[in-house]
Design a protein around this nucleic acid. Structure first.
Lengths: 127, 127
DNA sequence: ATATATGCAAACGATTTGCCACTAA
DNA sequence: TTAGTGGCAAATCGTTTGCATATAT
């Protein structure tokens, strides 16, 4: 078990991800971080995002696009993804563990599930 | 609207994806295709997989890993993903359109949803 | 003191694309 | 005939990594 150091960089990255509801990409986090710490490197951002995911502090989302998004809320919850602009937002729906039970009944060893809804966000809908 | 030609290559790729339950990666399709048509190129495989997705003949899946998988069944259905070996399999559960209604009630324009269960497949569980 | 993290740049792997020859319609 | 497609290789893009230096503990 390796020890984690809470460096300035890691703290900043954690604060940025926890401090937004926009489910940011690694590059968005990088741009935000540079506003505070101009010499921070993209590699450091990626390294720390990965560490923070492993530490269970944040969550990584892979919804269709070729890049990952990150979520400051590590608890399992559901998302809405806009098929036009790619924006990801939280959905006000409580976790449904009963879904896991349905699959366990089929003999599969289920740990968790992911549920995402796709459609047009309010902004893209009105365009 | 461009016209699609049903070339030997496209037909072969379609048959390969429709003919397996393994939710293959592009490279797996490429290796299979080469057994029949040794000079087929990887670019052609990628191009046709994309065309077939756009035509609604097959479906693209992005579950966590850094590469896509493809599914010969384009109808919305649910999957199980092994967190250890990455294998993807179908789940015997009918589509639940009622879930979309729950989200529509929140004012979002939902087209469809995706539901994936994660856990250990029977092979990895017994290791 | 020293193991872990940083910045930088090069490397990586999956996927896409430009080009010219080929072929399905 | 001709617009769409194939093969090939180079390019792209998000992400990872090697290395020498810096820093948290």
């Amino acid at each position: 078990m390796s020890k984690h150091r809470m460096t300035k960089q890691k703290k900043l990255i954690l604060d940025i991800v926890k401090g937004t509801k926009c489910h940011p990409t690694a590059d968005w986090v990088y741009q935000e971080a540079r506003k505070v710490m101009p010499k921070i490197s993209l590699g450091t951002v990626y390294r720390n995002l990965r560490l923070l995911v492993e530490m269970g502090e944040i969550m990584e989302l892979n919804y269709g696009s070729s890049y990952s998004r990150f979520d400051g809320n590590p608890e399992n919850h559901y998302h809405f993804v806009c098929v036009k602009c790619g924006e990801v937002s939280d959905i006000d729906m409580t976790d449904m563990p009963a879904l896991n039970s349905l699959v366990r009944d089929q003999g599969l060893d289920v740990l968790y599930h992911r549920l995402e809804f796709y459609g047009y966000c309010s902004k893209c809908k009105s365009e």
